[in-house]
């Protein structure tokens, strides 16, 4: 039993999840169309290869399709949950390929601007604004802070590994991560004020 696509399109992500858990392909297709782009982009950012990014994205979404009921709305948004699954799978993929170095740039403004304006929903526009704020915040971070955040989140390196890679004390890595995240958080809070 499946819903019509136009009906599913009107549902929020949180409302789609029970349908996906009930194995509704139309609901899942809408879910993929909403988030497949950012999921693939995140996977590509982490693994650095299109074929591997496709594999990661496909595995992540199949995992969601087969375990959609595991989403717990008390622990955050569906999108964040989905992206955490993509990240974890991408990091696993990266770790399986020894010596893979992550890309370390956030210069995506030009690419975003190239997207057709008619694709911009209000929600997507807000995400762009948020993305812009994050890039701004990251751009303002001292290089040593943004580097440890990127190595950890996009590179999948532990703080101990980062300490060894950069040749700085572990406590310094901890401090840089903390200061960097707090600065981003502060920028977000200011943006909402």
């Amino acid at each position: 039993m499946s819903v019509k696509r136009e009906t599913a399109e009107r549902l929020a992500d949180e409302e789609l999840m029970p349908l996906i858990a009930a194995k509704d392909p139309e609901a899942f297709e809408v879910f993929y169309d909403r988030h497949g782009g950012v999921a693939y982009s995140l996977a590509y950012r982490i693994v650095g290869e299109r074929a591997a990014a496709e594999d990661v994205t496909q595995e992540a979404f199949i995992s969601i399709w087969r375990s959609g009921a595991r989403f717990d709305r008390t622990r955050g948004s569906v999108r964040s949950w989905m992206l955490s699954i993509v990240r974890n799978r991408a990091i696993d993929s990266l770790r399986s390929k020894a010596g893979k170095a992550p890309k370390l740039t956030f210069d995506d403004d030009a690419v975003l601007e190239q997207r057709p304006s008619e694709e911009l929903t209000e929600e997507e526009a807000m995400r762009r604004e948020t993305a812009s704020e994050v890039r701004g915040a990251l751009g303002q971070l001292p290089g040593e802070q943004s580097k440890v955040i990127e190595l950890a989140y996009f590179g999948g390196f532990s703080q101990s590994e980062i300490s060894r890679m950069l040749g700085v004390p572990l406590g310094t890595v901890k401090g840089r991560m903390r200061l960097g995240l707090e600065k981003i958080r502060g920028e977000l809070a200011e943006g909402l004020a």
Binding site: G36, G37, Y40, S41, L42, G76, L112, R135, I184, L188
Partner: peptide
């Protein structure tokens, strides 16, 4: 702060064959 990090990555269109 952590949840917005993936939102800031460069966007790429997934190939249609993936869908």
């Amino acid at each position: 702060a952590v949840e917005v990090l993936p939102e800031a990555v460069e966007r790429h269109r997934p190939p249609p064959r993936l869908r």
